[in-house]
Simulated scan of single mutants.
Amino acid sequence: MTQTRIIIIAKEPRPGHVKTRLIPALGEAGAAQLADQMLQYTLRQALEAGLGPVELCVSPEPRAAYWQQLAGADQAKVSSQTEGDLGQRMATAARAALHQGLPVMLIGTDCPDLSAGRLRQMADQLQHHDACLCPVLDGGYALLGLRRFHPSLFNDIPWSTAEVARITRQRLAALGWRFAESETLNDIDEPEDLLKLMSTRPNFIQPPTEN
């Protein structure tokens, strides 16, 4: 299989700054701890997939102690997200990676369904398509794979809405690109998503640790 670069778009799990929609259910500390667990899980799966280079594209500060202490981070490149909205940050990361000559898969940290096996499956699809997509139940996507770059996939998209995957499909089709798509996956953004997570991975949510 041709090597594929995996770029994890990640945010340091600081209480009150991550998973804010889950704070009413988990509290600031609990939401941040879940974000930390999901980030660690995502990195483990990306490394276990064994597809090629893994990059953590992070905010707000790649030199923060968190990234230096994160298990597995020494096996990945840690880079800084650029300024701008999510689309601008993803576009910059994707363009830079593609310039290095490898297909790229951009992933977030909100989708426990993105196992190492799933990542390998999508990388295989990407060998035969211009792009690949893993949609999620809320209308967004958990993975966008690319063999080529076009800014329309990132510009003027209403991020964090139910329209993201639909618009992305439309733009891929307008470009005339062949793309593969997985079945719709689960991601964890809203309190009701926690019920699905607890039913499928009951040990994933841990009580908040005391400082």
Rank of each mutant, 00 (worst) to 15 (best):
D36M: 07
Q37D: 08
Q40V: 12
Y41N: 14
T42V: 09
L43R: 15
R44T: 13
R44H: 11
Q45Y: 02
Q45S: 13
L47P: 08
E48S: 15
G50L: 08
G50C: 11
L51Q: 12
P53R: 14
C57F: 02
V58F: 01
S59F: 00
P60W: 00
P60M: 10
E61W: 06
W67T: 12
W67V: 04
Q69I: 07
L70N: 15
A76Q: 08
V78T: 15
S79L: 06
S79Y: 00
T82C: 09
G87W: 00
G87S: 08
G87V: 06
Q88G: 12
A93T: 05
A93G: 10
A94V: 11
R95T: 05
A96F: 00
A96T: 09
A97K: 12
L98D: 01
H99I: 01
H99G: 04
G101C: 04
L102M: 11
L102A: 10
G108P: 03
D113Q: 13
L114R: 15
S115L: 07
G117F: 00
R118Y: 03
L119N: 09
Q121G: 06
M122C: 14
A123D: 02
Q125W: 02
Q125N: 02
L126D: 02
Q127R: 15
H128P: 01
H129K: 14
H129F: 01
L133K: 13
L133I: 10
V136P: 02
G140L: 02
Y141D: 02
A142P: 08
A142M: 09
A142V: 06
G145T: 08
L146W: 01
R147I: 03
